[in-house]
Each structure stands twice: as structure tokens, then as C-alpha cells.
Deep mutational scan, measured.
Amino acid sequence: LQLFIKTLTGKTFTVEMEPSDTIENLKAKIQDKEGIPPDQQRLIFAGKQLEDGRTLSDYNIQKESTLHLVL
């Protein structure tokens, strides 16, 4: 599923993930694309901070959802 990642600077980029992927996987993918170390990434969806060990489906993140990346 394609997700939109929006940064505080207003930049938006996309990543391609599976619902079974963990937040950790997502942070690694963001590191590949943007060079931001996972330990500096905080991801927010629907007002909640996402925890590394959980999956996208745990948070009911669907295709074309927008996640906010806070550094």
C-alpha cells in the first residue's frame, strides 16, 4: 500500500509498504529514501505516536493514508 509521509517543513514523499510491515520497517524505508536515522523519527497517525513493534494494520493504516514525520 502506498503511504504519504508529510514532514513539518511541508515536504511530502511516498513509500510503498505492506499492511503486515512494522513501524520499524517503515522507519527503515524512510531512512533509505530520506537518510533520516530511525531513532530520530517520530511518526504520528490520527493523533497517535506509532510504536516500532506494531504493524501498520494494528493502527488501521490504509492505502494512501498520510503519516506525519516529526524529527
Rank of each mutant, 00 (worst) to 15 (best):
residue 8 L to Q: 06
residue 45 F to D: 01
residue 50 L to R: 00
residue 11 K to I: 12
residue 71 L to Q: 06
residue 71 L to N: 14
residue 61 I to H: 02
residue 19 P to E: 10
residue 20 S to L: 13
residue 44 I to N: 11
residue 25 N to A: 10
residue 20 S to N: 07
residue 3 L to C: 02
residue 71 L to I: 13
residue 3 L to S: 00
residue 51 E to A: 09
residue 63 K to W: 07
residue 27 K to Q: 02
residue 43 L to A: 01
residue 48 K to G: 08
residue 61 I to Y: 02
residue 17 M to F: 07
residue 21 D to H: 09
residue 18 E to T: 11
residue 11 K to D: 12
residue 38 P to F: 13
residue 50 L to A: 02
residue 53 G to W: 11
residue 66 T to I: 10
residue 68 H to P: 02
residue 15 V to H: 02
residue 54 R to W: 12
residue 12 T to I: 15
residue 70 V to S: 13
residue 59 Y to C: 03
residue 27 K to W: 03
residue 23 I to E: 00
residue 40 Q to V: 11
residue 69 L to C: 02
residue 35 G to W: 04
residue 63 K to R: 07
residue 13 F to M: 15
residue 67 L to D: 01
residue 15 V to N: 00
residue 34 E to F: 08
residue 28 A to F: 10
residue 42 R to L: 05
residue 69 L to W: 02
residue 20 S to E: 11
residue 1 L to F: 12
residue 43 L to S: 00
residue 39 D to P: 09
residue 3 L to G: 00
residue 36 I to H: 12
residue 41 Q to A: 09
residue 52 D to P: 06
residue 58 D to W: 09
residue 6 K to A: 13
residue 51 E to S: 07
residue 66 T to A: 08
residue 51 E to V: 06
residue 36 I to F: 07
residue 20 S to M: 11
residue 71 L to M: 07
residue 50 L to V: 04
residue 54 R to D: 14
residue 56 L to A: 06
residue 26 L to D: 00
residue 57 S to M: 12
residue 48 K to R: 10
residue 46 A to S: 07
residue 56 L to G: 02
residue 61 I to L: 09
residue 25 N to D: 12
residue 45 F to I: 06
residue 59 Y to E: 05
residue 42 R to D: 11
residue 36 I to L: 05
residue 37 P to M: 14
residue 54 R to F: 12
residue 43 L to F: 06
residue 22 T to L: 07
residue 18 E to I: 09
residue 11 K to C: 04
residue 13 F to P: 00
residue 7 T to H: 09
residue 11 K to S: 15
residue 50 L to I: 04
residue 51 E to C: 03
residue 32 D to W: 09
residue 60 N to G: 08
residue 29 K to N: 12
residue 35 G to N: 07
residue 38 P to T: 13
residue 14 T to V: 07
residue 52 D to I: 15
residue 3 L to A: 01
residue 20 S to D: 15
residue 40 Q to F: 08
residue 52 D to Q: 06
residue 57 S to L: 10
residue 54 R to C: 04
residue 26 L to R: 00
residue 37 P to A: 13
residue 44 I to F: 10
residue 25 N to K: 11
residue 52 D to S: 14
residue 55 T to D: 05
residue 67 L to K: 00
residue 3 L to D: 00
residue 22 T to Q: 06
residue 46 A to E: 15
residue 46 A to W: 14
residue 9 T to D: 12
residue 51 E to P: 02
residue 5 I to T: 00
residue 61 I to V: 09
residue 24 E to I: 12
residue 33 K to H: 14
residue 70 V to N: 14
residue 18 E to L: 08
residue 48 K to Q: 15
residue 6 K to T: 11
residue 10 G to E: 05
residue 3 L to I: 06
residue 20 S to G: 06
residue 3 L to Q: 00
residue 63 K to N: 07
residue 71 L to G: 12
residue 46 A to M: 07
residue 66 T to Y: 10
residue 68 H to Q: 10
residue 21 D to P: 01
residue 58 D to A: 07
residue 60 N to S: 13
residue 36 I to P: 11
residue 19 P to Q: 15
residue 66 T to F: 11
residue 1 L to S: 05
residue 60 N to Y: 06
residue 69 L to Q: 02
residue 14 T to D: 08
residue 11 K to N: 08
residue 36 I to A: 09
residue 31 Q to Y: 13
residue 1 L to A: 04
residue 24 E to V: 05
residue 7 T to P: 12
residue 46 A to C: 04
residue 45 F to M: 06
residue 22 T to R: 11
residue 7 T to G: 08
residue 15 V to K: 01
residue 52 D to R: 04
residue 65 S to V: 15
residue 40 Q to E: 13
residue 63 K to Y: 06
residue 26 L to Y: 00
residue 24 E to M: 07
residue 2 Q to M: 05
residue 22 T to P: 05
residue 47 G to P: 01
residue 38 P to W: 12
residue 53 G to R: 08
residue 10 G to N: 13
residue 61 I to F: 07
residue 32 D to C: 04
residue 46 A to G: 08
residue 10 G to C: 03
residue 61 I to D: 02
residue 1 L to P: 07
residue 17 M to N: 02
residue 10 G to Y: 05
residue 19 P to G: 14
residue 29 K to V: 13
residue 11 K to G: 12
residue 65 S to T: 13
residue 60 N to H: 11
residue 18 E to Y: 15
residue 2 Q to V: 13
residue 30 I to T: 01
residue 39 D to M: 10
residue 50 L to G: 01
residue 5 I to K: 00
residue 71 L to W: 07
residue 65 S to I: 05
residue 12 T to F: 08
residue 65 S to Q: 06
residue 18 E to D: 14
residue 35 G to K: 14
residue 54 R to K: 12
residue 59 Y to I: 03
residue 68 H to F: 05
residue 62 Q to Y: 08
residue 49 Q to I: 07
residue 62 Q to A: 12
residue 16 E to V: 13
residue 47 G to R: 04
residue 60 N to M: 05
residue 36 I to C: 03
residue 31 Q to W: 09
residue 69 L to R: 00
residue 39 D to R: 08
residue 17 M to H: 06
residue 37 P to Q: 11
residue 15 V to D: 00
residue 37 P to V: 13
residue 10 G to D: 13
residue 46 A to Q: 10
residue 16 E to P: 09
residue 20 S to I: 13
residue 19 P to R: 09
residue 56 L to W: 02
residue 23 I to Q: 01
residue 6 K to G: 05
residue 64 E to S: 04
residue 45 F to T: 02
residue 65 S to F: 07
residue 21 D to R: 05
residue 19 P to Y: 06
residue 13 F to N: 01
residue 65 S to E: 11
residue 20 S to C: 04
residue 18 E to K: 08
residue 70 V to P: 01
residue 54 R to Q: 07
residue 37 P to E: 10
residue 50 L to D: 00
residue 68 H to D: 15
residue 5 I to F: 03
residue 20 S to T: 13
residue 71 L to D: 13
residue 13 F to Q: 02
residue 27 K to E: 01
residue 47 G to V: 02
residue 13 F to A: 02
residue 7 T to N: 09
residue 44 I to V: 09
residue 55 T to V: 08
residue 2 Q to D: 05
residue 36 I to V: 09
residue 62 Q to R: 08
residue 13 F to H: 04
residue 2 Q to R: 04
residue 38 P to L: 11
residue 52 D to K: 04
residue 34 E to A: 10
residue 14 T to S: 15
residue 15 V to R: 00
residue 40 Q to T: 15
residue 14 T to H: 07
residue 67 L to E: 02
residue 38 P to A: 14
residue 37 P to S: 12
residue 70 V to Y: 12
residue 29 K to L: 05
residue 31 Q to R: 07
residue 29 K to P: 00
residue 22 T to Y: 06
residue 41 Q to W: 06
residue 64 E to P: 05
residue 10 G to R: 01
residue 61 I to R: 02
residue 1 L to W: 11
residue 58 D to S: 13
residue 46 A to R: 06
residue 15 V to I: 11
